[in-house]
Structures are given as C-alpha cells and as structure tokens.
Computed example of a mutant assay.
Amino acid sequence: MALRDQAVFGPGSRGSLDEAGAEGREAAALAAAGVALEDDEEDDGRRGLLRWDGFSAWLHCVCVVGFDLELGQAVEVIYPQHCKLTDKEKTNICYLSFPDSNSGCLGDTQFCFRFRQSSGRRVSLHCLLDEFDKDLPVYLKKDPAYFYGYVYFRQVRDKTLKRGYFQKSLVLISKLPYIHFFHTVLKQIAPEYFEKNEPYLEAACNDVDRWPAPVPGKTLHLPIMGLVMK
C-alpha cells in the first residue's frame, strides 16, 4: 500500500523550479559541504552523504516524553543517540509535549509547538540547504532561531499507575515548519511505536536517513516503514 501526501516544496514567489534545476541546486549544496560526487554513482540525491546526514536534513532528533505522577515529565529517549539537546531544550520539550487542555479524554492527540534553540549549535548539512528557503512560500520558510516540535500524545487507562493513565508523547524535533507533512509521518509511525517500542523507532529513523534532501520544486518519494510518501 502506498501513502500519497504532498511533499513538493514550492513553488516560490519567483516561480516554480523544474526538477533538473532542483537537482542542480542540491548538487551545489552538497559540493559546498565538501561532499565528493562520483560520476559513476547512481544519482539518488544521497551520493557521498555520511551516516545520519540524510536524517538531519529533515529532523534534529526524535524524543519520547513520559509523564509520571511522582517523577513528573521526562525525556525518556532521544534518537539518534548522538543527537544533543541542552537541559533547557529538554525542559521546553517536556512541558510543551503535554496537551494544553487535557480533559481526561482517552485516545491519541496530535499538535505542534515551537521553541527557541540554544545558541552555538554546529552547522550541519541541512543548514547548507538554507539557500532553498528563498524559493519557498512564506509559511514554509524556517526560522533559524527555533525548533519545531510535532507531537503524537497517547493517553489510555492503566490502573497499575498512580496517575491512573498511561501518558506518553512521541515528538519529532525539526527546523522545518512542515506541519501537515510531519503530522502525516507521525500518524504512520506513532501507533506502531507504542506497540513495538524502541526497535521500531530505530528502524523508522533509519528509513528517514535514506531520504533525499527536501528540495523546492522536486517531487520526492519518501519510504517510511513499508509505505511511500510522495
């Protein structure tokens, strides 16, 4: 089964880019990053990328936030494990990953938030793709000072817990303000994650790492856990 979703980033205020032009811009960005492109390699938009460079073009990290009556909110998992968050960033994620209005309704809830990122972060590949922002409509331009959090919150009754409920959020942290896109991604991976836990999350992140970079005007086919987003 294939899932089809709009992942076409453009057209911009100066007109849409054709796919050939988009590929040329992507190659230029990779060259600026010092990535060597071999002529005999298949051009899949990922030539020469290092481990997790593909992932970081879309996401900074994925977090799991648990809510405990005695311990309070806590970031239980950060993946990939090498990704760093400051204590202040973790605190912001914890407090913002719980719904503002939770009336005790059971089930799943999706929402998003943004928070200021700490200064002094190392430049990564997705920062080198910032030149593409000028080709995007205003509502898709990212703010370099902020992270965006996309949340899938689950609440179910659990009499074994003092709170009386199992409450946990799966959170995608990104510099990209693609609200509909990331909510669609969460709808595909979050329900399975709550059943299968960290091995499933690791597999999903490995899929994202194989995605080509988000280039305006270029139609992308993005595999995620057996489905393909377009």
Rank of each mutant, 00 (worst) to 15 (best):
L17S: 03
V77C: 07
Y95K: 09
A31N: 07
R47C: 00
G21F: 02
A7E: 15
S16G: 09
Q81D: 06
Q6N: 14
P80D: 04
D44G: 02
L50A: 15
L85Y: 09
D43G: 00
F9W: 15
L96Q: 14
G72R: 13
G66Q: 04
C63K: 04
D43W: 00
A31K: 07
D44R: 02
R14E: 10
A20L: 08
L71E: 13
G66K: 03
F67E: 10
L96K: 13
D43T: 00
I78T: 15
H60Q: 11
F55K: 02
L50S: 15
N92A: 13
L96N: 13
D87L: 15
C61Y: 03
Y79I: 00
L71T: 08
D100W: 05
N92P: 01
T86H: 07
G45W: 03
C94Q: 08
A31P: 03
P80M: 04
I93A: 12
E70H: 08
S56W: 01
A57C: 13
E41C: 06
A28M: 07
K88W: 11
L37W: 01
S13L: 10
D100K: 12
A36G: 06
D68T: 04
L59S: 04
E41L: 05
F9L: 12
Y95M: 11
G45R: 05
A20F: 07
L71Y: 03
A22K: 01
W58A: 00
L17N: 02
A22I: 05
K84W: 14
H82D: 14
L37D: 00
C61F: 06
S13G: 06
D39E: 09
L96C: 14
E70Y: 08
F55G: 06
A28L: 12
G12W: 06
G34I: 13
E26N: 10
Y79R: 03
L71V: 12
Q73H: 10
S56P: 00
T86Y: 06
G48R: 02
R47W: 00
C61N: 12
V35H: 02
T91N: 07
P99D: 10
F67Y: 15
D39W: 12
S97T: 14
F55S: 05
E76R: 13
H82E: 10
I93H: 01
R25Y: 03
D100T: 15
A31C: 11
V8K: 15
D68A: 05
V65H: 02
A36S: 05
T86M: 02
T86E: 01
A74D: 08
E19R: 10
H60E: 08
S101Y: 06
R25N: 05
A74H: 05
A57M: 11
W52Q: 11
W58L: 01
G48I: 02
L71R: 07
E41R: 07
G15T: 09
L59D: 04
K90L: 13
A27E: 09
E41A: 11
A32N: 11
S101F: 12
V62M: 09
F67N: 11
P11I: 06
F98T: 14
